[in-house]
Write a protein that binds this DNA or RNA. Structure first.
Length: 283
DNA sequence: AGCCAGGTCTTCG
DNA sequence: CGAAGACATGGC
């Protein structure tokens, strides 16, 4: 067996469980005393040991996962900025979730995944994406076990609506199929990287099945645009219950949060989303 | 059993 | 414009 690379990082601002379970990624699962994470055709095994969070991966993937987990960024500063806002629920959220990091995920995977996510629950989203990978993705070997890469566009583009319905996509089947076809026909979402966030979102919303919420998630988790603030059912609850908000249009709610939080909006959104669900679960 | 899930599209005032 | 319904499916 080939030797693995190891990334060791202080766990105070890098909590593996919280980072993975806060709803930004769907391709991971518990394994032994840690988690296996899959991105593109790469795998990592993540676990805690003493004061450290540790990532094991193939040597050639080390830089990829270092960037994937956003380990270049100073989350002490981000959390500190959040505390300085004095917004109570955000302060509470940061205390509980300061180990969350915003991942740098593959743009294509993020786009497909968040189209699947619409009006859907997280366990089922995970299941559908897993089935998609098992059905069409290349086999990957990692630590003596087999996993499946996210499928290529070529594979995705030849499947019919029937296949997508059979794996449980329901009415989202056509969204996924048409996206795959248009990407095979030359739509290049990597090129959007040069656009400013508002133009990036316009381009994403142009796609069939992509609305403002999905566009915000793709901008944040795929393009690392922290000046976006996805508003879903949970965040809408935060807005009403904790900010006493009265707006109804989610687009306007998103704009309102961005006007409050600026460049850090996306980070704060994750803390709030994480915290609201944490509270709800422990009721 | 029935409500809800990291919403979007279509249609109708 | 904004509001209201339709949409598939299964988790809880």
């Amino acid at each position: 067996m080939k030797e693995l690379a190891k990334i060791v990082f202080n766990k105070e601002f890098f909590n593996i469980k919280d980072t993975l379970e806060c709803g930004q990624i769907f391709r991971f699962f518990k394994c032994d005393n840690g988690f296996v994470v899959i991105s593109r055709d790469k795998c990592a095994f993540c676990y805690e040991q003493d004061d450290s969070s540790i990532i094991e991966c193939k040597i050639e993937d080390k830089e990829y996962f270092y960037h994937f987990f956003d380990l270049d960024r100073d989350y002490f500063c981000i959390c500190n900025d959040a505390l300085k806002t004095g917004v109570k629920i955000l302060v509470d959220a940061v205390e509980k979730g300061k180990g969350i990091r915003i991942l740098n995920q593959d743009k294509t995977e993020t786009l497909f995944s968040f189209i699947v996510s619409q009006n859907n629950n997280i366990p089922r989203i995970k299941k559908i994406i897993k089935t998609l990978a098992i059905s069409l993705g290349e086999v990957i070997d990692f630590k003596g076990k087999k996993y499946h890469a996210f499928p290529t566009i070529d594979k995705l583009a030849v499947m019919g609506e029937k296949f997508y319905k059979e794996i449980g996509l329901g009415y989202r089947a056509e969204y996924i199929r048409r996206l795959a076809v248009s990407m095979k026909d030359g739509l290049d979402i990597e090129k959007f990287s040069t656009l400013k966030t508002s133009d990036l979102k316009k381009q994403l919303i142009n796609m069939y099945g992509v609305g403002p919420k999905v566009a915000d998630c793709v901008a944040l988790f795929g393009y690392h645009r922290s000046d976006s603030f996805p508003v879903d059912t949970w965040i809408e609850k935060v807005y009403r219950e904790d900010f006493n908000g009265t707006l109804n249009d989610r687009n306007k709610i998103s704009q309102w949060f961005c006007s409050q939080f600026g460049e850090n909006s996306g980070y704060y959104q994750q803390y709030l989303f994480f915290y609201k669900r944490l509270i709800e679960k422990s009721l």
